[in-house]
Design a protein around this nucleic acid. Structure first.
Lengths: 189, 189
DNA sequence: TTGAAACCTTGACATTTATCAACGTTTTTC
DNA sequence: GAAAAACGTTGATAAATGTCAAGGTTTCAA
């Protein structure tokens, strides 16, 4: 499993870093079932997850009990509650497995140790942060500037994997619309 | 003007960094008029701005020509098109002055030079990134999980400055609703 | 200072989207 | 493999929100 992470790090940095084996050793393997919860809102996030296989969703639960998905993460991506993790404060979101997953996880202390020890690790983290932020920016702009149909079209053009791989119900939640509206509009997209 | 930035850096890091004067010297002062455009979507963002006095908005222009505000920034905050700036790629958003502003700006080359030279500068940038990302996360979650009235209430509790300091029109755009709906609902909030 | 422009509010109405219920289909679980 | 649960779709209807127009107010710029 760690070979996937090895390749990811090399391609992220554009080179093979020194101490790569030492970094890989800080991660442990974890296999999950579908719908398994990795982090519950209010708990303190102790890990960063790297997805070898599967899909995660980061979400909040609204007043009516509905889940609102903020983001999906697929293979070769990182997921955590970044702010809560870095400051070891209660999470404002939950994380769960949309599919059965193969993950590599690194604990808070190990993560900070790696960041302190290796400039390349910090560099990679910075890059991940920038990409994550950029994705969140797109999310805000599609949600404020587009109606339901336009959001579906945007997804179709920019993240088609989400439409083909995931259930309609969960995609509707991601788009901030009801499942019925999604059914009705996706024919027109 | 640079005293504001000096204080900001000290409080952000929790200590006075070495080479602070050298960092401050990399910034130049800039005064702007209301509505002055600092970055146009599609252009390459060459600067990071620190706000000494005033308010900036980051926004996109929708199909109908309406501006949709993604975020406001006030005194003692940083603003730039982070992803476009770091990769020197065309911006996906525009930045303009909501009020007349006093800014300190640092150019791309200078910024990278500071980041390469000073660990504390990198540390501060990381911190800014994490806070910015966290804010974007809140934005996504309020937009997907709340209706118009709930968003106004959320703003009232979490960012009251936005409601009191800025025009209704622009706040409505930030909330992703029409000015008329905002007028009608804010009485009930 | 003054005319022009932008803004805020309100009403009437149109459009979009949500909700509820029903039912056939698919998926999960034991 | 069979029962139960979750899902996807459709229709009817309700609720939320947008659009257009008008008029009073505030702000801006010459």
């Amino acid at each position: 499993m760690k070979d996937y992470l090895r390749q990811h790090i090399i391609s992220n940095l554009g080179k093979t870093p020194d101490n790569l084996d030492q970094v890989l050793a800080a991660f442990s393997e974890r296999k999950t079932k579908r719908n398994e919860l990795l982090l519950r809102e209010g708990d303190i996030c102790r890990h960063v997850f790297f997805i070898v296989k599967g899909c995660l969703q980061v979400f909040v639960v609204g007043k009516n009990g509905n889940e609102s998905v903020r983001e999906f993460f697929f293979e070769n991506n990182w997921t955590t509650d970044i702010f809560g993790f870095q400051n070891q404060l209660p999470a404002k979101e939950s994380i769960k497995c949309v599919e059965p997953c193969q993950l590599l996880q690194i604990h808070y202390e190990q993560f900070q140790a790696m960041a302190n020890a290796f400039p390349e690790f910090r560099e990679m983290y910075k890059h991940i942060l920038e990409v994550s932020y950029n994705n969140a920016v797109y999310r805000v702009n599609t949600l404020t500037a587009m109606n339901a149909l336009e959001r579906i079209q945007w997804l179709n053009e920019n993240q088609p994997k989400i439409l083909t791989r995931l259930s309609s119900k969960i995609v509707a939640s991601y788009l901030g619309i009801s499942p019925e509206t999604f059914t009705r509009l996706k024919g027109k997209a």
